[in-house]
Design a binder for these strands. Structure first.
Lengths: 417, 417
DNA sequence: GGGCGCTTTGTGAAATCGCACAAAGTCACC
DNA sequence: GGTGACTTTGTGCGATTTCACAAAGCGCCC
C-alpha cells in the first residue's frame, strides 16, 4: 500500500506544516497553501512571489475570504473535494481574484481535515507530479493528526495546570514555576484573573472563540484558561511584557467592557477581574476576587456598573463580611427598624427616601429629582426621618452606619430571595 | 465552758441577725443594734420606739454616722471595745445625739466581727442581764460566722456560674436555667453585659465598691459579676423587672456614663456594654460585644465618645472585619496611595484634609474651621485631592470607600503600634 | 535673582439651601 | 360628615455655599 520511500520526498517527519509547504513548493515548483476544514490558513509557501489576490487575502487574513469560500461552495468545488480522493483542478473565478488551482482534500479516516491548494503558476502538472501532490496531501494529513494530538495534549496539560492553580494545589511558588517550565509556559510577572459569565454553558467552540477575541484585543493575552459551566476563567497578562501596568489596566478594562456589552463580536456577558497579582500561589484568592466582582455586579448592578477590577468595588467588597456579621448579631439598626415600622403603618417611603438621599451624596436637589418629588417634600421627609429615626443627617458616622446597614440588608434579602 | 441551755435564751439557731436582735430586745427590754466591724448596720430591734438620734441616723443610713464614729474613736470607746471581752458602758455624747449605751464587741477567734449595742432606756442592767448580754454577743458572733460562710459559698457559686456563662460552658439554655434555679438566682428576661475597665487590677474591695455603686443607681441591678484583672464584668438588668427597656437603657447609659467620668464616687474608668440579650447561651457573644466597645473607644475615642451599647458603635463594629480583609488583600486603595505619596513628596496635607472633610460630613465650612484654613484653601485642596486621587467627592460610594479605608488604616496602624 | 508652579487667601456673583408660610389633598377616627 | 394629623406642593426670601478669578506668598530650579 505505501509508496516506496525513494520515490516519495514527503515520507519524512516534518517540523511543521510550514516546512511541508516549503518542501511541496520546492518539489513541485508552485505556491502552496494548506488550510484546515474551516478554511483557516494553516501554512503556506513563502518563497514564490507569484500569487493571486485570493491567496494574498487568505494569507493576510489568516483565512480564506468569505466571498471566495462562497464562490467555491456555489460552484460545487468544496463538495467535489470532499467526495474525491484525487486532486481536482479548480477553474479560475475572476470576480473574487481566484486564478485556477490544483486542490485536494487532506483526509484522515474518512474525515476531511483540511485542504491543500497549489497555484499552477504558468505550467500544468503531469501525472507523476499529481501523484507527488497526492503524497503531499497524505503527509499533510499525517502532520495535522500529529499536531492536533500534540496540541490537545499541551492544551490538556495547561488546562490541568490552570485548575491546579485555581484550586491552590501547589502550596508554594517554587513548584508552580517548575511545572510552568515543564509545560514550556512563561509565567508573566503581573497578571489578573478574569471571569466571563455567559448565559449558558460554555462549550469548547465558544471558549475558543472567546480566547480568539481576547487575543485579538492586541493588549490582553490569555495566559491560561479554564471553563466552569457558564464561566470562562482566564488568567490574563499584558500582551507586551514590558508594558506599563496602568496603561494595560485601562486597555484591558476597556476591552472587557466592550466584550461585556457584546460589542466584541459576541453576546453580552458579565465580566469581572481580580486585582493584579504577582504570586501564583495566590491564584485561588484572585479567582475569588473576580467572582466577587461578578456577584457584586449581580446584586448591585447600577452601583457597580463601571466596576471591573476587584479593587474598583470599593467598600462593596466588604459587604459580605458586614452582612455576615450583621446576621450573627441579635439586634437590628434601631433607626431603620423604626423607619420601616413607620413606613409599614403609614404606607410611607421614609426608608427609600433615606436610601436615595444617602445614595445621592446627601444632595437634596438630585435626590428630590431622583425621587420625582418636590425638594420641599424631600426636606419635609428628611425632617421626619431625623425625628422618627433619631438620626442626625449631618453626621458622617451615622450616615455611613445607615448606608452600610441598608446595603447589607439589601445584600441579605437578595441573597435569600 | 458552755453555759447551761436552760439559762441561755440565745443558745438556739436564729433565722437571721434580725431575729436575734428582736430576741435580745425581748429578753433585756432595750433597743438593740448589731453592726459589723466597719460600723455598717447589720440588724436592729424594731419593736421599741424609744431611741436617740444617733441610732435613728444609723438605721436610716444603714451605717453609723461618721461623726458618731469619730467621737467614739476619739473617746477611746472603739479601742476599749476591741480590748475587752466584757460589756462596756459607754457614756452619752450629746453633740452627736448619742445617749449612753451598753456595748460589747462581737468576737470570733480574736477577731472583732462587729459590735452589739444596747440602749439602756431608763433602766440599768444588772449582773445577770450583763451575762445574758454577753451570751447574746456570742450568739451574734456565731450567726455572723455562719452567715459569712454561707455568703462566701453563695458568692463563689455565683462567680463560678458567671465564668461558666462567659466561657459558654453550658451549650444550651436549659442547663443554664437549671443551674440558676439551683443557685436560687432569678434570671431576668432581658439583660446586658457591662465591662468596666479600671486603671489597675481590681481587688475584692474595689469590686464590692463598684457593685454597691451600681446597686445604688436605683435602676441598674448587677445580676452576676466577675473580675478579670483590671476589668469588672457585670451582667446587668433593670432593677424593676417590668420596666420599659428603652427607659432602662437610657438610665443605665446615663449612670455608666457618670461612672466612666468618675462622677459616681470613684475614679474615671472606661465602660462598655453589649446589646441586650435574652438567651443566656449567648453570654460569650455579649461579653465580646462589651469588649469591642471598650476596644473601639480606645482606638477612636473622639468618634465613639458617646457610645456605650455595642449597637451604638454603628459601622465601627465592622472595622475589625474590614481591616482584617484589607490586610489579606494584596492591593491598597489607589487614591489613598497616591495622596499619601503626594503628601510625602510635597510635604502637603491632602490625606488629613480629605479625612477631616469626610469626617465633617463634606461640610466645607466646618471642615475648614477644624483645619484652621480658609474655606477657599480647603476648596482648592479638595480640587487637588479629586485630581490626584482620581476621586469624585460628590459620589457617596467613593466617599464611603475612602472613609472606611482611612478608618481601617488607622485601626491597623494603631493596633500594630 | 528671576521664572515657574504650587498654595493660600480674598472678593464677588451665581446658585443653592433652609425655612417660613400657605394651600390643598389624604386618611383615620369620632 | 367633620376634625385633625400628616403629607405634598408651591412661593418667596434671606443666608449660605459654590465657584471662578485675582493677587500674593512660598519654595524650587536654573
Amino acid at each position: 500500500m505505501t509508496e516506496p520511500t525513494e520515490n516519495n520526498p514527503f515520507a519524512q517527519s516534518f517540523d511543521s506544516l510550514e516546512t511541508l509547504a516549503e518542501t511541496i513548493n520546492e518539489v513541485l515548483g508552485c505556491p502552496v497553501t494548506i488550510e484546515d476544514a474551516g478554511h483557516r490558513l494553516l501554512a503556506y509557501s513563502a518563497h514564490d512571489p507569484h500569487t493571486d489576490s485570493a491567496r494574498l487575502a487568505t494569507i493576510v487574513g489568516r483565512r480564506v475570504p468569505e466571498n471566495v469560500i462562497a464562490s467555491l461552495r456555489r460552484d460545487g468545488v468544496i463538495q467535489r473535494l470532499a467526495d474525491s480522493l484525487e486532486p481536482i483542478r479548480v477553474p479560475a473565478i475572476d470576480e473574487v481574484g481566484f486564478s485556477g488551482r490544483l486542490a485536494i482534500a487532506i483526509r484522515h479516516k474518512d474525515a476531511v481535515l483540511g485542504y491543500l491548494w497549489l497555484l499552477e503558476s504558468g505550467k500544468t502538472l503531469g501525472g507523476r507530479e499529481l501523484a507527488l501532490f497526492k503524497q503531499a496531501a497524505r503527509a499533510a494529513a499525517d502532520k495535522m493528526v500529529r499536531l492536533q494530538s500534540a496540541r490537545r495534549k499541551s492544551r490538556e496539560g495547561l488546562r490541568d495546570f490552570m485548575w491546579m492553580l485555581l484550586h491552590g494545589q501547589f502550596g508554594s511558588e517554587a513548584p508552580i514555576r517548575d511545572k510552568a517550565e515543564q509545560l514550556g509556559l512563561a509565567l508573566p510577572a503581573e497578571w489578573h484573573v478574569v471571569v466571563v459569565q455567559a448565559a449558558g454553558a460554555i462549550d469548547e467552540r465558544a471558549e475558543q472563540r472567546l480566547l480568539d477575541r481576547v487575543s485579538a484585543s492586541r493588549s490582553v493575552r490569555p495566559v491560561l484558561h479554564a471553563v466552569d459551566r457558564a464561566q470562562a476563567i482566564l488568567l490574563c497578562a499584558p500582551q507586551l511584557a514590558g508594558a506599563d501596568r496602568r496603561a494595560y489596566a485601562r486597555e484591558a478594562q476597556a476591552f472587557f467592557a466592550r466584550l461585556a456589552r457584546g460589542e466584541e463580536d459576541g453576546v453580552p456577558a458579565a465580566v469581572g477581574s481580580s486585582a493584579f497579582g504577582q504570586s501564583y500561589a495566590e491564584t485561588p484568592a484572585r479567582h475569588r476576587e473576580a467572582l466577587a466582582v461578578l456577584q457584586t455586579k449581580r446584586l448591585f448592578p447600577r452601583e457597580t456598573e463601571r466596576a471591573f477590577y476587584y479593587p474598583d468595588l470599593g467598600y462593596y467588597r466588604f459587604l459580605p463580611a458586614i452582612a455576615a456579621q450583621s446576621r450573627a448579631e441579635v439586634f437590628r439598626n434601631e433607626s431603620l427598624v423604626r423607619l420601616r415600622a413607620y413606613d409599614r403603618e403609614h404606607d410611607a417611603n421614609l426608608l427609600s427616601t433615606l436610601a436615595t438621599f444617602l445614595a445621592h451624596d446627601s444632595n437634596a436637589k438630585t435626590a428630590a429629582e431622583a425621587l420625582h418629588v418636590h425638594s420641599n417634600t424631600l426636606s419635609y421627609r428628611l425632617k421626619r426621618i431625623a425625628e422618627i429615626g433619631g438620626i442626625d443627617l449631618t453626621d458622617m458616622d451615622q450616615k455611613v452606619s445607615l448606608y452600610l446597614a441598608l446595603k447589607a440588608e439589601r445584600l441579605a434579602t437578595d441573597q435569600k430571595g
